[in-house]
Structure formats: structure tokens, C-alpha cells
Amino acid sequence: MIELKSPAEIERMHTTGRFVADILSELGEIADVGVNLLDLEHHVRDRIRQRGATSCYWDYAPSFGNGPFRNVICLSVNDAVLHGMPHDYTLRDGDILSMDIAVGIDGWVADSARTVIVGTPAPEDLRLLRATEEALAAGTEAARPGNRLGDVSAAIQAVATGYGYPINTEFGGHGIGRTMHEDPHVPNKGRAGRGLKLQAGMTLALEPWLARTTDRIVFDPDGWTIRSADGSRTAHSEDTVAITEDGPLVLTRRLPHHADPTPA
């Protein structure tokens, strides 16, 4: 069942979204050559505790995972793209790091992911990262009342295929609101004009993720970390987006300092 949110409820999600965006921005500054993934994990734990927020990941135990997840952020490096468990790994020059976090504040959730390149970026890695960001922007632009869910998926797909990257459909975006995962599922591949009709008040986490040369995935022995099946590098971009009468509103976009926090 899809729950439509009121403008006031969307604004409460926006509060959570700004917090999530700030954390990812901070991590982007901290992540550097020589930094351990566990340092990033503990930074996020401290920020969540200070804010009085709740991690959506801690104790999360879906059917595909291996027991409850006991971290507050997913950190995936190079050929890992989703659900990477923070562990004792020191970042190296040229690593691709995908950071994915979902938290709740006062009962309302926001979910976002960003990918950064540590140290010296390779041109092919920058291209892959740019493709996920542009796919996210295209999917967001299509998230308007009266459009169909397939319009969002098709917009994401068009960017990915335009870059020549294959698309996996096993994991994608999702509804979000009072909990991290709500209906509907939002594939990163679809047909325009098909599927659920979008309405104002719907809130979606859109998350294109790509591997350079494969659409197949494998799981690490930890039961969580998802990698490209052929070891090719990966990237992941995600925002929480509200569908409003005025168009899509990105709830996890970081505002400039001193900006008016009230959405237009």
C-alpha cells in the first residue's frame, strides 16, 4: 500500500533529508587516502547519536542478508556497489567509495547515497560516476504528478544505456516515508507510459547504480556486500524525492550555508 504524505509530513522528511545530506557531505570531505572505513562508520554513529536520530540499518535483517546488519552506513569500495559492510580497510589512491545511509528523525526517514573517488580519479571512473548522477537527475525530473512509474525508470535507463552501461534490475529504488522500504519498487529500467500513476504526496528513494561492464552481481561471504560479477568498478547515486504539485522536490539535497531551509 502506498501512503501519500501531506505537505507537513514531507517537510518533516525534508528535515531528515537535510541531516542525511550533511552527513554524506562531511564523509566526502573526510574520505581520503589513509582513512579507514571504520573511522567513517564511527563518525556517522557519533552524528546520529548527537542528533537523536535512529539508524535504519542497525539490526536490519531482510531475506537476502546474513543476519542483522550491525552498522549505520553502507560503505562499498571499487567493485562493491551495495550494502558494503564497514570493515578494517584503509582507503587507497584511486579507490571508488560508495556511501549509503538512511536514518529516521521523529518517525520520518530519508535515504541517500553518494559515490566519491579517493585521491587521483581515473577518467573512466569519473565517467561512470557522472552516469549515475545524470541518471538520478533524469529519474528525478520524471517524478511528476500524472507521469507513470515507468517514466522514471525509463529516464534512468536512457542515461545508463546512452553511456553504454548495462543495468541490473534485481535491486533498485523504493518508496520511503515512515520506514526505509515502502511500496512501490522503482526499477532502474522500464518502459515510459507504463506502471503506477504518480501522485502528489508520493515519496521515493531513486537510486541508479551501475557496474562498468556487467549487469550481474555476486555476494561476499558476509552475506551483505554486493559486487559486480566480473570485478568491474561500480558507482551508486541516490536521493529521496517527494512528488509535489510543483514538481519533484529532492529532500536529501544539501543546502548552501545560510540558505533558507524552507522549500520553495
Rank of each mutant, 00 (worst) to 15 (best):
D88F: 00
Y89C: 01
Y89V: 08
T90F: 11
T90S: 10
T90L: 14
D93F: 04
G94H: 05
I96C: 02
I96Y: 00
M99H: 02
D100H: 07
D100I: 01
D100G: 00
I101T: 06
V103H: 03
G104A: 15
I105R: 10
I105H: 10
D106Q: 12
D106V: 02
V109Y: 10
A110H: 08
A110I: 06
A110C: 12
D111F: 13
D111C: 15
V116N: 12
V116G: 09
V116H: 11
I117Q: 12
A122G: 11
E124M: 10
E124K: 14
D125H: 14
D125W: 02
L126S: 11
R127G: 00
L129Y: 02
L129M: 11
R130M: 04
E133C: 04
E134N: 11
E134F: 01
G139C: 08
G139H: 06
A142L: 11
P145K: 15
G146I: 12
G146F: 13
N147A: 15
G150Q: 06
G150N: 07
D151L: 09
V152D: 05
V152Q: 09
S153L: 10
A155F: 06
Q157R: 11
A158Y: 03
A158S: 15
A158M: 11
V159F: 03
V159A: 06
A160L: 08
T161Q: 11
T161R: 15
G162I: 02
G164K: 03
Y165G: 04
Y165M: 07
P166S: 10
E170N: 13
E170F: 07
F171A: 12
H174V: 14
H174Y: 13
G175K: 14
I176K: 12
R178C: 08
M180V: 13
M180T: 11
E182G: 11
D183G: 13
D183E: 14
D183V: 13
P184L: 09
H185W: 07
V186L: 15
N188Y: 01
K189R: 05
G190W: 01
G190T: 01
R191M: 04
R191W: 00
G193H: 05
G193P: 04
R194W: 00
L196M: 08
L196D: 00
K197S: 10
Q199F: 02
Q199V: 05
Q199A: 15
G201F: 02
M202T: 01
T203P: 02
T203H: 00
T203D: 00
L204Y: 04
A205C: 13
L206G: 09
E207F: 01
P208W: 01
W209T: 05
W209V: 04
W209S: 05
A211P: 02
T214R: 09
T214D: 08
D215V: 03
R216M: 14
F219M: 14
F219P: 00
D220I: 11
G223N: 09
W224Q: 03
W224M: 07
T225I: 08
R227H: 15
S228I: 04
A229F: 08
T234M: 03
T234R: 03
A235E: 02
